[in-house]
């Protein structure tokens, strides 16, 4: 079985701060990580491979340093990695990213049985690229997958919903976006780690994918960022301290004054 996992390198949102004067993200020195949900997607792929054999390919679109994320994936057990990178792809929103990634998937020679994505990327939180690629590539798609079993013609998938779950039968090739609860991550393997360091990672750019120039990068993106700003801070807050009984008394007095209690 051939599985492709799309992984994105993101800044660790735990460590990003915002400069309240310039309204810019302080990204300097912030480590890059594999998008956490994509790690679960990769783990799902590796578990399917452990059970049924086959090959796991990881694909990432981003600047040249996204190669690091791909090497990490190799050290976890992915068999092959492809970097999709070109200055012309820069500034892409989810529409243009979906389009470009799809061209890369179409260039992969072996027929793909399953394409996995994280539920969402933690930098943009959009959760759109999975469904976008699935449509462009022409396969059925299920979001928020928690479990995936191989069946005769495809997969049986458990999808987390707002109130419980759905169980689906989906034919292959198929695409899934994977939630955190899907699995526990494995540790990198030392021998694979060494091999990953030396692995050749092909980089596919504009000339390799031959895209419609109108549909890539910043100009191919229907959405534009108009403005960024720091989240507002509450101004008239009241901080109480002292004896618990007194604090609570004052709190309740104030809540009643506001008529919320």
């Amino acid at each position: 079985m051939n599985i492709v996992v799309c992984i994105k390198q993101v800044p660790d949102s735990d460590k990003v701060t915002i400069d309240r004067e310039t309204n810019r993200l302080n990204r300097a020195g912030v480590p890059s990580i594999i998008n956490p949900f994509d790690e679960n997607a990769l783990e799902m792929a590796l578990q399917l491979k452990d059970k049924h054999g086959g090959k796991v390919t990881v694909v990432s679109m981003g600047p040249p340093q996204a190669e690091e994320a791909l090497r990490t994936a190799l050290s976890l057990g992915a068999d092959e990695a492809i970097l999709v990178s070109d200055r012309k792809f820069g500034g892409a929103d989810t529409w243009a990213t979906s389009y470009t990634l799809t061209l890369a998937l179409k260039k992969i020679k072996e027929p793909i049985d399953l394409i996995l994505f994280g539920k969402q990327a933690i930098d943009g939180d959009t959760a759109q690229v999975g469904p976008g690629v699935a449509h462009f590539y022409g396969v059925p798609m299920i979001t928020y997958a928690k479990e995936c079993e191989v069946t005769e013609n495809g997969f049986r998938v458990k999808q987390v919903t707002d109130r419980g779950y759905n169980l689906w039968e989906i034919e292959k090739p198929a695409a899934l976006t994977v939630v955190k609860e899907a699995n526990e991550l494995r540790m990198p393997n030392l021998r694979k780690k060494l091999a990953a360091k030396k692995a050749e990672i092909p980089c596919w750019g504009f000339d390799d994918l031959n895209p419609d120039e109108e549909k890539i990068g910043l100009s191919g993106s229907p959405t534009k960022v108009n403005k960024v700003f720091a989240p507002p801070i509450k101004l008239n807050k009241e901080i109480l301290s002292g004896e618990p009984a007194d604090m609570v008394k004052e709190l309740i007095f104030k809540l009643r004054e506001k008529k919320v209690l």
Partner: peptide, 8 residues
């Protein structure tokens, strides 16, 4: 970015 920033 996990709520660190608001974007319009």
């Amino acid at each position: 970015f996990g709520g660190n920033i608001m974007a319009t």
